[in-house]
Design a protein around this nucleic acid. Structure first.
Lengths: 209, 209
DNA sequence: TAGATTGTTAATCGATTAACAATC
DNA sequence: TAGATTGTTAATCGATTAACAATC
């Protein structure tokens, strides 16, 4: 539980931290040892002042005159975002998109791994997907509970999204990444993030022509 | 070109409009004829005042006492977002994710369709993907230009993202949906949206435990 | 009519930026 | 040292909310 003494950080700042981390890790991979708020800001399209202000919410990570040591800052951000550990995830929905996500290699180095895949299609249940076997959604609740899983991704049809979300929450899931093109309602202590390409595309066409 | 007399709408408002549209279309599919800012807000987790304020930027779409006629409001939003037409899109990168996106049936009713798919892998070039044949990235520039394509989705490795983005921009693309886990730099008049599941997941784990 | 709900105003709230002393 | 860059403050800017007259 969050301590009463912890400062509450605005969600808009939390939302930028993963982007800082990702960019710093790219720089690290390029062999860069040190950076400044200026340089990081240019890569991200964010002002240097905002980056310094955001980071200063969590501590003093930089040095005047020289900037930030990248390996140190990466570790700090990993700790802050709680991805200095490996989160077990469930994937619900083994359609085309579910298959692509199950095969994606980008989770493991960022703090996540898929340990269970569910579908309600009898044809799919029992078949192999990557290193896992697709399991029956009917058993999802008990399996998630006994495995203590708190993070899930949903790649199910829009019509099933609310019902699946409710099952996930009932099984103890506290963070849901929803690929279904559908708003879902969950208790206030459950986090939801949405990925819907159409939403992003429509946001851009407004500005076209 | 945008008329000088057009009011400039904050991007944060534009970003909510596709969500309004999506939810209204769901309600329409449920056979609901009319709604209120209150009801729509409950579905979306947004305050009624904010919905009214957002919509009022574009016109007077409601009636006191009765609310909003859904079919009318849907049409208005489709016009505002310019998805009262069909946008031809290119998809660059025919990996697992590219395949899943190419097969996705959710674009066509929302104003978009994929008309070209590119990859640089000789093994993939020339093979069928859905109703399209994967084409050589080397020919991308000229093909995009002659087809007059302005919207593209990128499902390429992070290392290729900046270079592919530059090719797209040079070919006249003005809106890019980037699935690569990488920030890209483009001219200010080109729109970019990002989809990276890790970013969304890390934003949620901050709040867990 | 009476009840409901809009569009809009003004007030509040929160986020971003600019500037600079501190200091590496 | 001199130059560079942080962390922080205060000012600015922008977004959200509350409230209500208008009116369907």
């Amino acid at each position: 539980m969050e301590k009463m003494t912890d400062k509450i950080i605005p969600d808009v700042i939390v939302g930028r931290l993963p982007r800082y981390l990702r960019t710093l890790q790219h720089m690290q991979a390029e062999g860069i040892q040190t950076t400044s708020s200026q340089e990081l800001g240019e890569r991200l399209g964010i002002s240097a002042a905002q980056i310094r202000k955001d980071l200063s919410q969590f501590g003093e990570f930089g040095k005047q005159g020289t900037g930030y040591a990248i390996p140190f800052l990466v570790n700090q951000l990993r700790t802050i975002l709680k991805v200095d550990r490996l989160w077990d995830m469930a994937l619900v929905g083994a359609g085309d998109l579910g298959h692509a996500i199950a095969r994606y290699q980008g989770f493991i180095d960022c703090g996540f791994r898929i340990v269970m895949i569910f579908d309600n299609d009898p044809v799919k249940i029992g078949t192999q997907l990557g290193e896992l076997v697709i399991q029956d959604s009917a058993e999802m609740g008990s399996l998630l509970k006994s495995a203590g899983i708190h993070v899930a991704m949903m790649t199910v049809p829009a019509a099933a999204a609310q019902s699946v979300a409710e099952q996930l929450v009932a099984a103890g899931v506290r963070a849901i990444l929803n690929y279904a093109p559908m708003s879902i309602n969950v208790p206030h202590d459950v986090r939801v993030q949405y990925i819907d390409p159409v939403i992003h595309l429509q946001r851009m066409t407004y500005y076209l022509e």
